[in-house]
């Protein structure tokens, strides 16, 4: 499903070259529930951006669903992001001028699905997330947990192969965090691969595999008991 071989990535800031990912080898199978841990600067966010085709890499290879992700045109990249990947961000990243339902329906808009159809599908997903009643609300009228549910619904609506979550619980209180994690586990059971970047131990403990990053290399890769 996801196959990384000798992945290198460095940033150039002025005259300094910052080597962030130093040759990662990683295979994640379809249907896994993985968490990526590490202190800040360990390269976990960079890894997630490369996996999400939001950023490019310098060396090595990245195969998603057996397709090599390199030298993509921005159009192709957008297409892959739209069809294969769902994103969940720490700061939710909802579009402020669209209500919950429209936010969820947005990926389908880019697939040229008609407005009526996509809004109907969006309602189904909001129902699954248990926030159907807030469909007409704007993002600034929702609580953090509700916003993240909307974001998760949006990530799921295009039926992606993998959902990438970048500190999804970073802005939520512990009760809501656990609720969101339960939601993730449920989604994972339907066969969607989940990769969650976090630095909270109790979050990673809810996943089936914990990858620990340190200074751009994999320090440990543990299959956990649950």
């Amino acid at each position: 499903m996801i196959e990384l071989k000798g992945l290198h990535k460095s940033y150039i800031t002025g005259n300094n070259k910052l080597h962030v990912l130093k040759g990662l080898d990683l295979i994640i199978e379809q249907g896994e529930l993985v968490s990526v841990m590490g202190s800040s600067g360990s390269g976990k966010s960079t890894l997630l951006n490369v996996l999400g085709i939001l950023d490019s890499y310098d060396n090595g290879s990245y195969k998603l669903n057996n397709t090599l992700m390199s030298n993509l045109t921005e159009k192709k990249a957008a297409h892959f992001r739209n069809n294969m990947i769902g994103f969940v961000f720490q700061s939710f990243n909802l579009i402020s001028f669209k209500n919950a339902m429209e936010n969820v329906a947005l990926p389908l808009y880019y697939q040229r699905v008609g407005r009526k159809t996509r809004n109907k599908i969006a309602m189904e997903y909001l129902d699954k997330m248990g926030i159907k009643d807030w469909a007409e609300h704007m993002p600034n009228e929702l609580s953090g947990g509700q916003k993240q549910r909307v974001a998760i619904a949006r990530a799921m609506i295009s039926k992606p192969k993998v959902i990438l979550a970048d500190e999804p619980t970073g802005a939520l209180d512990s009760t809501t965090s656990l609720e969101v994690m339960d939601l993730f586990r449920e989604i994972n059971k339907s066969g969607i691969t989940m990769i969650i970047v976090t630095h909270e131990r109790d979050i990673s403990e809810k996943t089936n595999r914990i990858i620990q990053l340190k200074d751009g290399i994999i320090e440990s890769d543990l299959i956990s008991k649950n």
Binding site: E74, A78, N82, N83, F87, N93, I95, Y110, Q111
Partner: peptide, 16 residues
Amino acid sequence: TKEIGIQRAIGATPVK
């Protein structure tokens, strides 16, 4: 910029 970034992350093509 940020909004445009979000839109692109969830699949908006440059042409769009």
